[in-house]
Nucleic acid binder design. Structure first.
Lengths: 336, 336
DNA sequence: ATGAAAGCGCTAACAG
DNA sequence: CTGTTAGCGCTTTCAT
């Protein structure tokens, strides 16, 4: 075969015009069965596959949505992505997934690329809340849905879990159990989830008349090593916390590893609640109490909202969809 | 703004021809600095972004590689994908990721889509070894690299870990410890890794003069529930195995949960080795002995090979790149 | 039921 | 250094 076959080749072989071939390819009907058959045969023989590029040029539509996450290695995201992909497939959309490795530069780059490719919509969890580059999308009239992030400056839909409430519930639980020296391992505070979870922590402390000790607020990075360092830091203090709230799954992992290395007895010497349920939660002893959220549902919802926006002709108002997290009480928080 | 700005709009605003604009966009030089500046200004003012579709039509190249994995929720794949994305980015390629949910139909669909979009290459871990739909790619002259799969019928490059050896090492270790009633939880046997791991298991048994008891070969599905069921099945036998080799990470998880539910004491009543290192491995008591493989490296290597193929003008011979797994001995296999 | 022809936005050869 | 022009492969009127 010389070059990739195109619509002309098919037309010639089937002895029809390219217009007719196009009609068949797109199932528009109005073609005599015999003719159609002949065309189908030709397509098969040539192994013809239509060019998305050429098609896009005419139709200005790609049936494609772009998805951007900051860290594909964080198990939270693959689950969300799977939810998105699933729903998108149902609706006849194709998803292109990308991970930015938490880099703003990469994120911007991917954005541009999405625009160049003419995606019909974008679902994004930005690396941080600085959403200037998203303006570009908005300018182009491309619908956006944010997952687990609040983008104040933009009129985009948002799907998230009530982070503040989740943290509040977790810490309240700890307090109810008699804990007073409670520590929080935070994520990057320029990020909605991290700051909201910290707010929930503070509110729980305040509403229960407990002072927030700044030495018990330790900065992490939403990565395993951050949790590890944070736990060590807490352990090294003269007066240690009796309970720890970890702001995300990866840091929980690191935290747990640190406790193990330090021989800091989980559940006995220190109570623990983590944000997000993780594999190990029910496999270690004691089993972990966690704040759980419906991740796949999050993804499905995100696509749903995007889909509505893509179909809508006029401009929709900004919407926010807040799901409730659930505190799953297991055994890692003994009474004080 | 009426319509999305195109190269003509920019040309008009900058008072030059579209050819000159094109030169600037593509950094081809040979444009008077003053002119270039004017054009850049116009681009900025209009918010112009070039259309990938139009570009692709001319250049027959997209600088894009498609990646297909069967299950994005299996933590193995995100790590491989991250490796691919990373290396691709370095080389100026864009990756589009897709998960098939283990469905052959979906996989075929995605394949077509990749071809329509004109990807320059594809990295794939097929759901099963039936690679007929990959023929299409081959016909189109699109380079393919298989990860963790052997595609006999196709002349594609393959990157994998020595599955047989990994299983052999694991089981040999068990045998050396005095175990004789050793069970294996298999994956879908129409898949390279599953069948190779089973072969490794058998070889280890044979070479050590141990009979392979068919009741100890239980079929799983590479999913958590499969591991769970399998462990229960093994537990229910009148004569239980004293050691279990689990063929993948997800099944290890299920297996462990089952043991917990059954109160089947890991490390005491039953030894355990799993294929692939997992988060929980060092967090549970006893710590898990596992076969570990360099997943990110796997991804990087895959892109490397694909890259070479994409650049090569002539047809390269089929290559196979086999990495060595490593048995990490921890505490889940006591002496018999 | 089918065909002819006009672009979609871009790149690259050629001309100046 | 810059402009003109011919397509790339397809969809879509408008004719027939």
């Amino acid at each position: 075969m010389e070059h990739k076959p195109n619509i002309h080749d098919v037309a010639k072989l089937a002895n029809v015009s390219i217009a007719t071939v196009s009609r068949v390819i797109n199932g528009q009907g109005g073609v005599r069965p015999k003719t159609e058959e002949r065309i189908l045969l030709a397509i098969n023989e040539l192994g013809y596959i239509r060019s998305a590029a050429a098609r896009t040029m005419k139709k200005k539509e790609t049936k494609t949505v772009g998805v951007i996450v900051p860290d594909i290695k964080n198990p939270f995201f693959p689950i969300v992505m799977a939810g998105i992909e699933q729903k998108a497939r149902e609706k006849g959309y194709f998803t292109i997934l990308s991970s930015t490795d938490e880099s703003m530069a990469v994120e911007e780059n991917i954005m541009r690329n999405f625009i160049e490719r003419g995606v019909d919509g974008v679902i994004v969890t930005t690396a941080n809340e600085n959403s200037d580059h998203l303006k570009l999308l908005e300018t182009q009239g491309i619908p956006i849905v944010a997952v687990d992030r609040v983008l104040n400056k933009l009129s985009v839909d948002t799907v998230l879990v009530d982070n503040e409430q989740g943290a509040f519930d977790a810490v309240s639980h700890l307090i109810k159990l008699g804990h007073e020296r409670i520590a929080i391992i935070c994520g990057p505070l320029d990020t909605t989830p991290a700051s909201r979870r910290l707010m929930g922590f503070k509110r729980a402390m305040n509403e229960n008349g407990l002072a927030v000790n700044s030495r018990f607020i330790v900065q992490g990075n939403f990565q395993e090593d951050g949790g590890y360092q944070a736990a060590r830091k807490l352990f090294s203090q003269k007066e240690r916390p009796t309970a720890i709230f970890s702001s995300n799954n990866l840091m929980s992992l690191g935290c747990l590893k640190a406790m193990q290395d330090l021989n800091w007895k989980l559940g006995q010497e220190v109570a623990f609640v983590g944000f997000d349920d993780i594999d190990i939660a029910t496999l270690i002893e004691p089993r972990l109490t966690v704040v759980s959220r419906p991740m796949d549902h999050l993804g499905e919802l995100a696509f749903q909202m995007l889909h509505e926006r893509m179909l809508a002709k006029e401009h929709l108002p900004k919407r926010e969809f807040i799901l409730s997290p659930e505190l799953i009480i297991r055994d890692s928080c003994s009474r004080m």
